[in-house]
Deep mutational scan, measured.
Amino acid sequence: MDVCVRLALWLLWGLLLHQGQSLSHSHSEKATGTSSGANSEESTAAEFCRIDKPLCHSEDEKLSFEAVRNIHKLMDDDANGDVDVEESDEFLREDLNYHDPTVKHSTFHGEDKLISVEDLWKAWKSSEVYNWTVDEVVQWLITYVELPQYEETFRKLQLSGHAMPRLAVTNTTMTGTVLKMTDRSHRQKLQLKALDTVLFGPPLLTRHNHLKDFMLVVSIVIGVGGCWFAYIQNRYSKEHMKKMMKDLEGLHRAEQSLHDLQERLHKAQEEHRTVEVEKVHLEKKLRDEINLAKQEAQRLKELREGTENERSRQKYAEEELEQVREALRKAEKELESHSSWYAPEALQKWLQLTHEVEVQYYNIKKQNAEKQLLVAKEGAEKIKKKRNTLFGTFHVAHSSSLDDVDHKILTAKQALSEVTAALRERLHRWQQIEILCGFQIVNNPGIHSLVAALNIDPSWMGSTRPNPAHFIMTDDVDDMDEEIVSPLSMQSPSLQSSVRQRLTEPQHGLGS
């Protein structure tokens, strides 16, 4: 029994001894940790006062410096006190997940390849973020970090730009207890964004957000305005092209109309020559008939004078003969009235020469109109080809070629109108001259024959008349068809009918 009691006491004593040793060891460790923490804080404070003595007594600045020092320690893998190029590049790629850190790398180092804690602190103090207000930090939280649900907490804590380094380091107390961020992804996102802002300055999105919006609005307005302008120009170009094509079609119709007119003019001239020949034959025939009538009257007179026994018949025959003579005298007077005045042959040749010289100047004017028309046609064809290209319509709308071609078409039409008026006036004037003179002027042997017949020096006439060419005029020349008939041919039928009527009546009387 005593043995059992003793054994229990030994065990209890051993447990108490072991517990005492454990408590003693724990207290010694706590004392050691407290001592090392105090030494670390003293070291940080001493270093901060050495680097930035004016701010070393500010608790907030001291906390920010400690956060900057921890960031530098995080980047300094070899713990030599300086962050070199390789260490910063590795940190950007692995910790901040930048696949192309060239720009960030140059911004961080600049011309200094080794970055110490002092360099990093001075860079942070010179950053724009260091002077941010609470509102600017909240704006950064909303737009860049995209965590607007913590806006009220940031405003309540009055977190300005000075506190940004403390957000950039992993601090459970700061993010969990103070900021009350329960979501781990939110804490990590805030820490990475803050670290990027401390090292490289304010984000471009935050700094140029309004400018970007303004430029976007301006670009949209310019784009819409450009599209509207292109649409208006395209519609104007199509309308202008439609008008130009309509004018061009009018020129083609006028060309065909003048071609038909020239054919009718040539045909009328041929008919005029035929009528002139018929007139000469008719006059000769009338003279022959008059002579035959005179001979017949003389023969009847002689027969009736030789027959004294038939006085009654003779008297009747003499009366008939007197009627025939009276008819012959009237026919002769009618014929003489139409051919009583004949212009000198020299006057006819001079008038024919005048007509040919006028035709020369008319042909020159006509050729100029043809050239203008050809230029207008070529310009229209070029515009047609340009319209078939990809940007042809837009190019035509913004060039002056369309207006130039339109002006050329209008100029050609005006020139053709002048040529039309000149042709109309010339035909009418020479027709009236032919009526008054009674001989042909338009139809003549040609300028060379006339110059030779009148003994004129050929050098006075200049160049010879160009051959009539096919040219274009407007449709108002169609009503000239009825005026192209020679006035002499219009007189011939009346002359034929009057003479024939007077010759036929006596012959019928003789026949009876």
Rank of each mutant, 00 (worst) to 15 (best):
L63K: 04
L63P: 00
L63S: 00
L63T: 07
L63Q: 11
L63E: 00
L63W: 00
L63G: 00
L63D: 05
L63Y: 00
L63M: 01
S64N: 05
S64P: 13
S64K: 15
S64M: 14
S64V: 10
S64F: 10
S64T: 00
S64Q: 15
S64L: 02
S64H: 11
S64A: 05
S64C: 01
F65R: 07
F65M: 14
F65W: 15
F65D: 12
F65Q: 13
F65H: 06
F65K: 06
F65L: 01
F65T: 13
E66K: 00
E66M: 01
E66R: 08
E66G: 03
E66H: 14
A67H: 06
A67D: 06
A67Q: 07
A67G: 05
A67T: 04
A67W: 08
A67L: 02
A67V: 02
A67R: 03
A67C: 15
V68M: 14
V68C: 11
V68R: 03
V68Q: 02
V68T: 10
V68I: 10
V68S: 01
V68H: 15
R69W: 10
R69I: 03
R69K: 01
R69D: 08
R69M: 02
R69E: 08
R69P: 04
R69L: 12
I71M: 08
I71C: 08
I71F: 10
I71R: 02
I71K: 10
I71N: 03
I71S: 01
I71Q: 11
H72C: 11
H72R: 08
H72Y: 07
H72I: 03
H72M: 10
H72P: 06
H72D: 00
H72E: 04
H72A: 09
H72W: 13
H72V: 06
H72Q: 08
H72K: 13
K73G: 06
K73Y: 09
K73E: 02
K73P: 10
K73M: 06
K73Q: 12
K73C: 03
K73R: 07
K73D: 04
K73V: 05
K73H: 07
L74Q: 00
L74S: 04
L74A: 05
L74N: 08
L74W: 13
L74T: 10
L74Y: 11
L74E: 04
L74G: 05
M75F: 15
M75H: 14
M75W: 10
M75L: 06
M75N: 09
M75E: 09
M75V: 04
M75A: 10
M75P: 12
D76Y: 05
D76K: 12
D76V: 10
D76F: 11
D76N: 13
D76I: 15
D76E: 14
D76G: 11
D76S: 14
D76P: 12
D76C: 15
D76M: 15
D76R: 15
D76L: 13
D77R: 04
D77L: 12
D77T: 06
D77Y: 03
D77E: 04
D77S: 01
D77H: 08
D77C: 06
D77P: 10
D77Q: 09
D78K: 14
D78W: 15
D78L: 15
D78T: 15
D78H: 09
D78S: 15
D78V: 06
D78G: 13
A79M: 04
A79F: 04
A79V: 06
A79Y: 11
A79C: 03
A79G: 02
A79N: 07
A79T: 05
A79I: 04
A79Q: 08
A79K: 12
A79R: 04
N80L: 11
N80K: 04
N80I: 11
N80R: 11
G81I: 13
G81T: 15
G81V: 09
G81M: 13
G81Q: 12
G81K: 14
G81R: 13
G81S: 08
G81W: 12
G81C: 11
G81Y: 15
D82A: 14
D82S: 12
D82T: 13
D82H: 03
D82Y: 08
D82G: 04
D82C: 14
D82I: 11
D82P: 09
D82K: 15
D82Q: 12
D82E: 12
D82R: 14
V83Q: 13
V83A: 11
V83P: 15
V83Y: 14
V83G: 09
V83E: 14
V83S: 13
V83K: 10
V83F: 09
V83M: 09
V83W: 12
D84N: 05
D84Y: 10
D84L: 11
D84V: 10
D84E: 08
D84S: 06
D84W: 13
D84I: 15
V85L: 05
V85S: 05
V85E: 02
V85Y: 12
V85R: 04
V85C: 11
V85I: 14
E86D: 02
E86I: 08
E86P: 13
E86R: 06
E86F: 11
E86K: 02
E86S: 12
E86W: 07
E86C: 10
E87N: 05
E87F: 10
E87Q: 14
E87W: 14
E87P: 14
E87R: 11
E87Y: 10
E87L: 14
E87C: 12
E87H: 14
S88H: 07
S88C: 02
S88Y: 04
S88T: 00
S88D: 11
S88G: 07
S88Q: 14
S88K: 07
S88A: 03
D89Y: 03
D89A: 05
D89F: 03
D89H: 03
D89I: 01
D89V: 13
D89S: 03
D89W: 02
D89T: 05
D89M: 06
E90D: 00
E90K: 03
E90I: 02
E90Y: 09
E90L: 00
E90F: 08
E90M: 02
F91C: 15
F91V: 06
F91Y: 09
F91L: 10
F91P: 13
F91N: 15
L92Q: 09
L92R: 14
L92G: 11
L92P: 07
R93Y: 07
R93I: 11
R93A: 11
R93F: 09
R93H: 12
R93M: 02
R93E: 13
R93T: 05
E94K: 04
E94S: 12
E94A: 05
E94D: 00
E94R: 14
E94I: 08
E94Q: 14
E94G: 08
E94P: 08
D95H: 01
D95A: 07
D95F: 08
D95Y: 10
D95Q: 02
D95T: 12
D95I: 01
D95N: 01
D95G: 04
D95L: 12
D95R: 07
D95C: 06
L96Y: 14
L96P: 09
L96N: 06
L96G: 08
L96H: 13
L96F: 05
L96K: 15
L96R: 08
N97Q: 00
N97E: 00
N97M: 08
N97P: 10
N97D: 00
N97G: 02
N97F: 00
N97A: 02
N97T: 01
Y98C: 04
Y98G: 05
Y98E: 02
Y98H: 10
Y98N: 06
Y98R: 05
Y98T: 07
Y98D: 08
Y98F: 00
Y98P: 13
